[in-house]
């Protein structure tokens, strides 16, 4: 009996060692351990074994079974591992093949510049508001201290709908609309389209964008105006940016200034980009004119404030080095996809 079991065991183990795949292994399992398998047959023959020998034979059968199973398990693991290896080897890809991309659309360069600017001012507590593009003469001119017959109202600059209605020439009328409605403290920026009677060419467009800024509160000073815009310039054009304020004139601010920033190409040394000057004119600004405050229902003896106006296209053209303004309104995909 013992010999028989030993023979079965060795035979099985030999066959396992010689087996080539999981299917062969399964056949061996059936042949030895299955219901009609050789080992099972031995167990079936136990009834012919003397009762006192049965435990011993049983033990021997179990040992043989365990040995076969162990061997079989090891072989199975080996086959599985090899299979996995083969599969992985077969599945190797060329990782340098091109990506299959979902092409996202691109924002307009004006939007890229505007969002950057908005982010800066929102961070400083400014609300972004808007006003109408087709505007009353009153808001576009009169309430901004630009009286009738002022040269700025000339037809060569302004598109008129009729005597009372114009296409706004600046975003400044939003200042007045906000001051009429809202009590200080006021901190707003107002981006939007403006219109001037200019023929289309590389540097002009009859329709472009400005961003108006307005701060009104008690005790606002010109130093606050300088500090705010210097901070804006650093955020917008880089931490090393320096600013220069030059006296200027706008009917609706007093004192008024224009702000230059150090050329972001050459850092102020002077290059072709800044025409050798080292500085680039960026915006107009000033302390809100007392007449404008009064006309908008704000007492200039109690409140003061500052305002500024920035040309969005100018920033976009300078920042992204676009050499022709017409590109901004043609919408060639090869242009738009660069932003």
């Amino acid at each position: 009996m013992k010999e028989k079991l030993e023979k079965i065991r060795q035979e099985a183990i030999k066959r396992i060692s010689e087996s080539k795949d999981l299917d062969a292994l399964n056949e061996i399992r059936v042949a030895y351990l299955g219901k009609k398998g050789e080992l099972t047959e031995v167990l079936k023959g136990m009834r012919d074994v003397a009762a006192e020998d049965r435990p011993k034979v049983g033990q021997m059968v179990n040992d043989a079974r365990a040995a076969i199973e162990e061997k079989m398990e090891a072989a199975k693991e080996e086959f599985t591992r090899r299979l996995t290896e083969q599969r992985l080897a077969a599945e190797t890809i060329d990782v340098t093949l091109p990506a299959s991309k979902k092409d996202m659309g691109h924002p307009h360069p004006n939007t890229v510049a505007l969002e950057e600017l908005q982010r800066i001012f929102i961070g400083m507590g400014y609300e972004v508001v808007e006003g109408p593009e087709v505007e009353l003469d009153y808001y576009n001119f009169e309430a901004l201290n630009i009286p009738a017959n002022h040269p700025a109202k000339d037809e060569q600059d302004t598109f008129y709908i009729n005597k009372e209605i114009v296409l706004r020439t600046q975003t400044s009328p939003v200042q007045v609309r906000v001051m009429e409605k809202q009590k200080p403290p006021i901190r707003i920026i107002a981006p939007g389209r403006v219109y001037r009677s200019d023929e289309v060419d590389a540097t002009h467009s009859p329709c472009f964008h400005q961003i108006e800024g307005l701060v009104i509160d008690k005790g606002i000073t010109m130093a606050d105006l300088k500090g705010t815009l210097a901070l804006f310039a650093k955020e917008m054009f880089g931490a090393d940016t320096k600013v220069k304020f030059r006296p200027h004139h706008f009917p609706f601010t007093e004192p008024s200034a224009e702000m230059d920033v150090t050329c972001f190409k050459c850092g102020g040394k002077g290059c072709r980009f800044c025409k050798g000057e080292g500085w680039i004119e960026i915006l107009g600004c000033g302390m809100v004119h007392p007449k404008v405050l009064r006309m908008s229902g704000i007492d200039p003896d109690v409140y003061s404030g500052f305002a500024f106006g920035i040309g969005l296209e100018r920033i976009a053209l300078l920042k992204y080095e676009i050499d022709d303004m017409r590109l901004l309104y043609e919408n060639d995909e090869r242009f738009l996809k660069q932003f």
Partner: peptide, 20 residues
Amino acid sequence: GYDNIPTTLPRGEATAGKLS
């Protein structure tokens, strides 16, 4: 000289910065 005017930031009551 505009350049000699100091640079400060507005103080006073805070306002919420936001998009409409």
